[in-house]
Each structure stands twice: as structure tokens, then as C-alpha cells.
Amino acid sequence: MSIAADALKNFEKITPKNIPLVEPLSRGHRGCQGCGEVLALRMVAKAVGSSMIAVSATGCMEIITSPYPQTAWEVPWIHVAFENTAAVASGVEAGRKALIRKGRIKDDGAKIVAYAGDGGTADIGMQALSGALERGHDFTYVCLDNEAYMNTGIQRSSSTPWGAGTTTSPAGLKSKGQMTWKKNMAAIAAAHNIPYVATASPAFHLDLMNKVKKAITVPGPAYVHIFSPCPTGWRCAPEDSLETARLVVGTRIFPLYEVIDGRYVLSRDVKNPKPVEDYLKIQRRFRHLKPEDIAVIQKRVDQDWERLLALVKATNPEAKTD
């Protein structure tokens, strides 16, 4: 299978010199100060440009950009419900496909980009997403992962990391907060054998935008999982928002990689990782953790990193990682 590789042969990278100036997601939305999720979404929209048809799940990004009669969207945008974004996108794609084939609308090269939070993706929207990926619709799905249900007030999701305190996984005398490990959504997407899967962080904006651009370039379904800091829910300073997005990569907690036609490629080999504590300590959602808890997290992060390297080796023998 080389669907993605073929489509990306002449891929023209976004560089500091040609960053798109379009802002399909305009200013004036109602996001919190320092919101990393809307920043990530803005980068997504810039990378796609004015040919984007946005399909939104219910969640922070929907609420803050669409209070009728105002909208922050300069491109066609549709929101239907919380758990069905991928299904709505399937319908948009099928409808356009039929109309183009029947000559009723012209092929304007529009790109369908569905986005949802981690709750809308890894929990309630998982079935619709799996169905849409399996059916092979030509669309890009972006998960904006702020590691909890923020829109409803910081409840845990299956994407909330171990040890994080949320309103439904509070730390207490008998609890360290979330006591399950973060669901690996990118791996689940990749298990659908779709042409393109990637992880990204808004602290690495060119990498993020290029991945989105690749995702919309490959035919068929593509999945981009974006780490999206939420200072409000993580209880960190708004000015530290991007710092968390940088540190999560620098500590190997959230590795940046692509899965192109099933082949794992590291986007950033973190040679000298920082201790996970550097990342944890600037967020009050982790403040109850003891050194031994942090050691547990460090161990898990190390293991996951090794597993990822093994996947890279196994699927992509030419890649140089050491």
C-alpha cells in the first residue's frame, strides 16, 4: 500500500517563508486566554485554507466560535451534535461525491475536515469515527486533545492522563486523580489501515500545519491527533500553555510521529528527554502527585517510547533511529 506515499511525492512543505496568510478561523471567538485548542484549530484552518469545509463536534471549539448570530468561521461550517462528527462528514463527502458525479455541482476541490475534542473522539464519537475511517471516506479527522471534557467543566475522558485531577476523577485521600492510562487514539486510528495518521502539537506549528496539509492531500481518510493545551482545565497559567505543548514533546510524553501507509515515522527524535516532572509541575491538575507517582509516570513514558521506536523499526526498516 503506497497511497499516501504516492500522493505526497511532490508535497510542497509549508515553511516560515510561505506560511498561509488566510485565517479561515478568524479572531473574535470566545476562547479562554491562552487556549491551546483554538490555537491548534487555527493552525489547522490555515493549513487547509479557504477550500475547507469544517465539520464540528459539540465542545469548546463549537461553542466559542458559533454563538448565533455571530460566527468566527470564514469557511463553510456545520455542527450537528457531539458524537456524530465523523458520520456527518461522511454524509457531506457522499453528498458532494454524488452531486459532482451527476454534474450538478462542479468539483471545486473542497477539503472536508472534521474536528472534535478528545471526548468527542475517543469516547462518545469513537463508533462513528471508526465507521467513517473503515468506509474510506475522503476526509480528514482532527482530534483536538485537551485531555478532558472541558466544555462541560473539566470531566475526565479516556484521554485524560494517569494522575490528572478532573472534576470526575478528583484527587482525594483514596485517589490520585485519574487512575487509568491515556487511550492511544492515534494507534486506534492507524489500526484502521488508513493512508495517513499523525500526531502534532501547536508548539511545533510548521510540523502541525504540514501534517494537516499532508492529511488533506492524501486520498481517503486521514487522522491527525493534536495535543491541545487547556490552561483553564489544566490549571496552569495561560502564558504557560505553549510551554506545556513544547514540554510534552520534549519529555517524550506525547511523541510526534506519522503513520504513512502503515509505516511509522518519527517526526522528532527526542534524544535527551527532559524528566516528566518538568511538564507535570507547571500544571496544577498534577499537583497532588508524590515523587513515587511521578516515577510511575516516567516509567510508563519510557516504555511507551521504546514501543514506538520498535514500531518505527518494524514498519520502516530504513528509518534511522538509535
Binding site: 458524537e83 454524509g91 452531486l99 468506509r135
Partner: peptide, 22 residues
Amino acid sequence: FVPVESEHSAISACVGSSAAGA
């Protein structure tokens, strides 16, 4: 013909396709 994985997705896909003008 979109062979969806549930009725929830069936009607959701219908909303999307109708919104696309089909």
C-alpha cells in the same frame, strides 16, 4: 449508498449530505 455503522450515524450522514445539497 453509505452503509453506516448505526442508525445514529445514518441520520447524521443524512444531515451532512442534505447540507451538502444532495
